[in-house]
Structures are given as structure tokens and as C-alpha cells.
């Protein structure tokens, strides 16, 4: 099927795991009692995301995301949510850093095992899509760093410019 779409490395971008997370996103819902929250938006492509987290005793007890966006942004947010649940906040933030490093270098980060998230490695070869993959992560970072009250903050964006 990937070949149908004309090659051109499309199969590298749209790895099966990514398509699968896009079709059946995990943790795409609102939380009952979130105590962390942030909004993200890339107006240029029309991606919008809201990330909620429940942090208990310094651990990410639960994460949920809602919104709309392309397959890359949705799959990335889904993979991310699965990954950070249960981790200490510090580890979740470290994963954000590792992910961003992966997007800029195009290589799996040393020292952190991101598991399935490494399926997003191919995105680094499509520079215009890096911002799609990064939106959920930057939004999570903002939610975790900002703590409880975030209602007044402007949405996170990974659009380099908006025309």
C-alpha cells in the first residue's frame, strides 16, 4: 500500500506504527481531574491540540490529549501520551528533550529508550513535518513546566512562521 502512494520515502514517514496510532489514537480524551494543562496550535497547517495531565507526587499519573491535526501530529501525541504515563515528571521532561534532539539530528537519542516513538525518526527527513511531530511534545512540556494555573497562557506553537 505504501508503494501505491508513490514511494519517495513516504513509507519512511508514514511507518505502520504511525498509521496505526493515527487510526486508533491512545489516550485521546479529556481527563476527569487534570491539574496540568496547555494548548498548542499550528495555524499554518491547522493543527490544534490540548494536553492535560494529572501529576501526583511528582509522577505523571495520567495524560490525555484532544484536538485535531495531521497523522503525524496525532500519532506523535498518541505515542507520547502512552510513553510518559507513570513516569516521574523529570523523566517525562527528559523525554521531551530527547524527542526534540531526535527531530534535529535524525538519530535515536543515546541513553533514553523511546521505544515505539523511534518510529517517528523518519519525520526528521521531512523538515516541514517536524513541527507537526513536535507540537504535542512542546505542549506537554509547557503543561508540566507551568504547573497548575495555565489558563492565561498563549498557545504553544511550533510553526516557524504564520502567513
Amino acid at each position: 500500500m505504501v508503494g501505491d502512494a508513490g514511494g519517495a520515502g513516504l513509507d519512511e514517514l508514514y511507518r505502520e506504527i504511525i498509521l496505526e496510532h493515527y487510526r486508533s489514537p491512545r489516550r485521546k480524551r479529556h481527563l476527569e481531574a487534570p491539574n496540568r494543562h496547555a494548548d498548542g496550535s499550528n495555524p499554518l497547517c491547522g493543527d490544534q491540540i490540548e494536553v492535560e495531565a494529572q501529576v501526583d507526587d511528582g509522577r505523571v499519573a495520567d495524560v490525555g490529549f484532544t484536538g485535531q491535526g495531521c497523522s503525524i501530529s496525532q500519532a506523535s501525541a498518541s505515542l507520547m501520551s502512552d510513553y510518559v504515563v507513570g513516569k516521574p515528571v523529570g523523566d517525562a521532561l527528559a523525554a521531551v528533550g530527547a524527542f526534540q534532539q531526535m527531530m534535529t539530528t535524525g538519530e535515536a537519542p543515546a541513553g533514553v529508550d523511546l521505544g515505539d516513538i523511534e518510529a517517528l525518526l523518519g519525520v526528521a527527513k521531512f523538515p516541514v513535518r517536524v513541527k507537526c511531530a513536535s507540537l504535542g511534545w512542546k505542549t506537554l512540556e509547557q503543561a508540566l513546566k507551568r504547573g497548575g494555573d495555565a489558563s492565561e497562557a498563549t498557545p504553544v506553537t511550533t510553526d516557524e512562521r504564520s502567513m
Binding site: G6, G7, L10, G46, D47, M163
Partner: peptide, 26 residues
């Protein structure tokens, strides 16, 4: 079921250049 950005990416792989996004008309 397919975001315009993904349409544009698949079309590009066919050599078809279209614009996707808000077209400066939000």
C-alpha cells in the same frame, strides 16, 4: 479522515504540487 497536510504529502509523492493549509484566509 485525511488531514490536508497528509493529502499534500501523498500528492507530492506523486509529483502533484498543491497547497495545503489556511491559504492566508483564516
Amino acid at each position: 479522515g485525511v488531514h490536508p497536510h497528509d493529502i499534500g504529502q501523498v500528492l507530492d509523492s506523486h509529483g502533484v504540487a498543491v497547497r495545503t493549509g489556511h491559504h492566508c484566509a483564516q
